[in-house]
Amino acid sequence: MIGAVNGALRRVPVWAVYLAGLLPLCWIIWLTLAGGIGVDPVKAIEHRLGKVALWFLIGGLAVTPLRRIAGLNLIRFRRALGLTAFLYVCLHALAWIWFDMGLLWAQAAADLVKRPYLLFGMVALALIVPLALTSNTASVRRLGPAWRRLHWLTYPAVALGVVHYLWQMKVISTEGWLWAAALAGLLVLRLPGLARLRLV
């Protein structure tokens, strides 16, 4: 069964994943142009972009455990998932500084210090910049074992992103707890004792 799925996945070109990753962006742009984004497009766009970034961040983090535990092989698509996540994190930050803060850099910087959740989000962004820059094949070859160590930064980056998301809520919603649980599960699976856990 899983073999058939993996076989089918091998025939999916990677560019199709990149293309699919742009669909949420197209949807947001469509809603904005069609007037369906709500009375506060600024917050709606900002929040939607952040949420899509979370999907891809968590999705990228799930690739290795899915292979280990379920035998599902998505490794070919991991770079596409990571770079798509990076795109949405950047757009989310851009929506904040441009639409929300109106490019008032000094006020934005002051708010950053006042609101730890903003700082968490910014640190998460800062952590994934080197990951995006070294995601190309040449960097993987050149960095060798250091590449794996560098890309371990994914874990703190995604964790900070999820905390950033939870912290901006006045009261953490059910959906918020589900994201927290997903993150906790994925982190627990990387613990040394559990890293070898297999279902198949």
Partner: peptide, 22 residues
């Protein structure tokens, strides 16, 4: 006088549009 977690120096007018700024 700022809120402890954000500045009160400016505001976003709802309905002003995406690029209206603050």
């Amino acid at each position: 006088v700022d809120h402890p977690r954000w500045s009160q120096a400016s505001e976003r007018r709802i309905g002003a549009g995406l690029l209206a700024g603050r």
